[in-house]
Design a protein around this nucleic acid. Sequence first.
RNA 1: GCGCUUGUAGCUCAGCAGGAUAGAGCAGCCGCCUCCUAAGCGGCAGGUCGCAGGUUCAAAUCCUGCCAAGCGCACCA
Length: 613
Amino acid sequence: MRGALIKCQVFLSSQRIQMIGHIHELVTHAIESLQNKGVFELDHTVEFNIERSKDSKHGDYASNVAMVLAKPLKMNPREIAQIICDELAETHHLSKTEVAGPGFINFFLTDACRVQVVRKILTLQDEFGDNATGEGQRISVEFVSANPTGPLHVGHGRGAAFGSSLSNILRKSGYQVDSEYYVNDHGRQMDILATSVWLRYLELCGEQVTFPANGYKGEYIYDIARKARNKWGDDYRHTAVEVFAQVCADEGQLGGDKEKHIDDLIVNSKEILGEGYEKIFKIALKFILNGIKDDLEAFNVHYDKWFSEKSLHDSDGIDRALARLDEGGHLYKKEGALWFNATHFGDEKDRVVMRENGLKTYFASDIAYLMNKFERGFDQSIYVFGADHHGYIARLKAAAKALGFDADKITILLVQFAHLFKEGEKIQMSTRSGQFVTLAELIEEVGCDAARFFYVMRSHDQHLDFDLDLAKSQTNDNPVYYIQYAHARICSIFRNLESEGLSHNEEIGHVAIESLSEAHEQAIIRLLSQYPEVVQKAAQNFAVNTVANYLRELAQVFHSFYNAHQVLQIDNENLRNARLNLCKAVRIVVASGLSLLGTSAPEEMRSDEKKND
RNA sequence: GCGCUUGUAGCUCAGCAGGAUAGAGCAGCCGCCUCCUAAGCGGCAGGUCGCAGGUUCAAAUCCUGCCAAGCGCACCA
């Protein structure tokens, strides 16, 4: 049979891809030619790879083609590799090929070809690394979406850092990204919040109130209450006796039930306050939401859209979603509640969408929100959830299928918890008691840069130990500063350029670029050329941490170079300009990578001034 | 009990669309500032990739079982 083969994993993206495609073509032609000559006899298709060599000793690219062909051809892989090498057409991109190891073919680029990347980076600037992976695709990334019942705490920080960085990376890979925060501004928790605020307000008015076990006890509730009192004075004051009339006993009391207790209080609050309840509710929501927005801004996290759950209730969003499920015959009544037969679509149990008391569950809103996302036409919707929400995967996918949508368009990424460590001790947190480390406190403590970097430097599905002391330290142990320092050093070189009476001529540098033949320089060039692939791979695998790892590596080779070679203090003008070009390219890529992670790229590092914070 | 996730160096972790001798950082030991910021660089030492099978020319990587850890299994949000 003719035309055996040939599939190659093509990593698209400008120059690299072209090179891999080019080499792939050369190999394919060689094999076809050998078939025609009757040297190779193949009767079925084979797949082989052209991939970047991990070790520079193995050239720039390598192929496993000979090993894959060994079996069908019943020949020794090294022998096959040699035959293919001899058959390869001439090309000015490659300086040599060699057979190595068990039968790899290694391809070596010419020096001229390899150093091209420096010019490319200086030309493209911060557009270097852009790739077309997501061209023409719209993608929704939802993250954090914490209930607006209190300030964000450190548990939300990782989702924020990850989701924000992921959005940046996807954008750089050509996706049209909508980042969203789903605001749960409706439902029981919000009523508990409003009621908690009102009770604190009554306290401020001088009423004797026993605060419910299930209420929100944080100090911020007082802040909101104070705000309400400043605004409305005693307008909403009622006696404690009135408020607690016919309320079930609280936890700890005889026959007490904290859930029933708070629910009764909510009912009373609504009745007693009437329209006033809505006002308290709104002032609380606004206060907290503004706080959340401020915290996220300070964390360099920005959203395209704040999606209100309430809007789904106010519009016909939820009703339409439920109607659609009903039309498909996926809803049924049982014991007064309305159920979605999620088990039919792979979930482990059916789910309630409307409770016996007539209230729609959060899951009903989730379904409506899901439908809304599909209706907006996203090619893909990413949910970033905390790992404790993994039960949601099956039910969301079940809902998507039941609604008639393609469940594969939903991707749920679970972010594992981060454990904070201080002085070697794990910090315990408990939201119940209102004692937790807020995100704002964390930023205050270690700074935005360190916090964001630490959160994403490990794979998102990996538990993370967050060492506060390390994040705060301004030493070489701290990876953030290590990378930023590389950037600052380069900026420093360019600052010193003028004071040394020198100047930078990029053109001279470009012409002399091949004089960068030192091992350190070659290592930097090699790494620089990988940046587009790193970004692309990070986008494809939703692996933000690979960017962090890459930056550390790049910083490392740069620091080595810096230590081994002078840039300014050399007489050879050509070499000096070539090295300046190289430094500038590193600076551009480091700055680009750091910005993807939402971390700044400072032009200088000054420990003395740092202490003034 | 069922489900999801994770077991790699003393510690924290990379690597996991299978590939050529398993990598970093910290901690330990030994070196480098008349030179662009030593927040840096170089070197030494450190691992039966949880255990056992299987697939493959090739397994830390894929499959199965077991062991261990974390999380989840509400008419809660």
